[in-house]
Design a binder for these strands. Sequence first.
DNA 1: GTGATCTGAGAAAAGCTTTTACCAATCCCT
DNA 2: AGGGATTGGTAAAAGCTTTTCTCAGATCAC
Lengths: 325, 325
Amino acid sequence: MAAAAAVSISTASKALNDTGRMGSETRERVKRIAAEIGYRPNALARGLLSKRSFTIGLLTNDTYGRFTLPVMAGISDALVDHGVSVFLCAIEDDPALAQIHVDAMLDKQVDGIIATGKRLDRRLPVDLSNLHVPVVYAFTEGTQNSVTFRSDDEQGARLAVEWLVKIGRRRIAHITGPEDFFSVRERAGAYHEVAGHREPVLYGVWSESWGHEAVEQLWKRPGEKPDALFCGNDQIARGAADALRERGVKVPQDVSVIGFDNWEIVAAQTRPPLTTVDMELKELGRQAGLTVLALAEGRPVEPGVRKLPCRLIVRQSCGGKAPRG
Amino acid sequence: MAAAAAVSISTASKALNDTGRMGSETRERVKRIAAEIGYRPNALARGLLSKRSFTIGLLTNDTYGRFTLPVMAGISDALVDHGVSVFLCAIEDDPALAQIHVDAMLDKQVDGIIATGKRLDRRLPVDLSNLHVPVVYAFTEGTQNSVTFRSDDEQGARLAVEWLVKIGRRRIAHITGPEDFFSVRERAGAYHEVAGHREPVLYGVWSESWGHEAVEQLWKRPGEKPDALFCGNDQIARGAADALRERGVKVPQDVSVIGFDNWEIVAAQTRPPLTTVDMELKELGRQAGLTVLALAEGRPVEPGVRKLPCRLIVRQSCGGKAPRG
DNA sequence: GTGATCTGAGAAAAGCTTTTACCAATCCCT
DNA sequence: AGGGATTGGTAAAAGCTTTTCTCAGATCAC
């Protein structure tokens, strides 16, 4: 303790926190000695008194980390400046495990909890609605009167289809995931709005092989073929691009392919690299982090769902040129 | 506080912790009331006294999470039963950021730190050697006298090549990553030991396109072609499998392809799905977690490097049959 | 020179839990 | 029935900070 090295005990606290009255030379001396001996206050004791642990919990059921990691990065990025550390708890849709983790976090007096997941329209398997700490939902369904951050899939889909239209495509098909996903319906809705109903929507699963198979289906049908494929995610897009190449259809010369998610490992490795829609998950995490911090500090935050805009990432699978470049 | 609801204050503690002497009916009553009002002790106060926070830090520079997530899952899995929560700190090879996170964790009195990374032969950009909390290294280079867990890449490579030999392959080529990676050299060493020096080792980068290009190189050369490709990771293997298919070479009938990493998103989506080597990162994380806990509790742990065996995952890219099935 | 004001610093309490010490009351034994 | 042991429970200290209160000494005004 700095007190031993220097003078008193409460004086030290006041010196280091720039609070209370005292001679400036005493203050400086205490600070200097504290720095010399590398004194750092015990956050547990501090938290015990201040009711703030400078700790938050991130709860996720996205085992694979596709969505959680960018969100986590954004949260950490936003909060590290405020001295806040993040507990990561991966619960695998296991309610019991989830409850254990939530209890452990509450015991450790987290200042707040951020819940995230892999699906906008599903709840985590644990009820967080009546905790005595603030809860923010990010990329997962929240409760009544909660603060929820999500990507604006409608706007993202519009971005994609408008891009295809802008570069001259007219027969745009939509290959996507299971229709019971909310984001699938939202993206399909935006697709219809922009592209009309000239081409079918093919619902399937979130896999490369479905993208592959969907192309087979489309090209087996009689009549004119699509000149663009708006795919529900990058994996489907990759499968579709592969299938087109194998049929001798040139991407992007003959057909443009556009994905969704900007999952680098898939999008950048596709031949050609995928133009796709990025959901800005890191920004989403950042805002969720700042919001839970605001709530923890008692600042008022309007409840409701906040949609964050997506961004178009132009690579080579559509042709066309990047805007402003 | 349970005391208010029930009887005293220190009695409550003893009742709930099954310690001290007291009437069993009092003990039961306190327990019951505590359960009724949902009392949970404050871990901060408890930690202040016991010098144990039941919290550890996981430090990683693997932004992408390919290695960190399984390790994290293993750690969490092993420690959740002990009531330990995990701070995840992603430092992006930024020494200043790393130091901030380490300081924040120390302030919060973590019981220990696990350092992990994306490369066996690189250090994290922060010195953890003289902390007053135990440090365990997992999948990253540790310091002198530290405890380090790593995958046994030599054994893993041997597993792969022996498998190829066992299913009758004789001309086994090795396409792998940059030679300055320790694991590349180790895997190549094992490859040479098992397969001899009949085929060349092609060093390149960790990408699908390198796998693709390497196949071009091999097949352009005059003479007999390889009948098996041992690839340094799954991405290379996928690129190679794609290149073979495009050349009309049948996988696995004509050529077996085997990967390394068992990165599901790549290995399972390859056509055909990749037989590959799994580094058992989750198990690695589990052991690292239990070890740091042991150290935190003062139990002695022999310092040194512990190599964990890899496991062969048989899918369809090699032909042959899965062992015992 | 004396009462009022100010200044610098220390003492003490609070925050919550666990542990040790302690104190009545009961019990047993002779 | 009286002394020692046992029992059931409370009081208090410790762990580390921060904050509020208090106090001694100095300064100032008249």
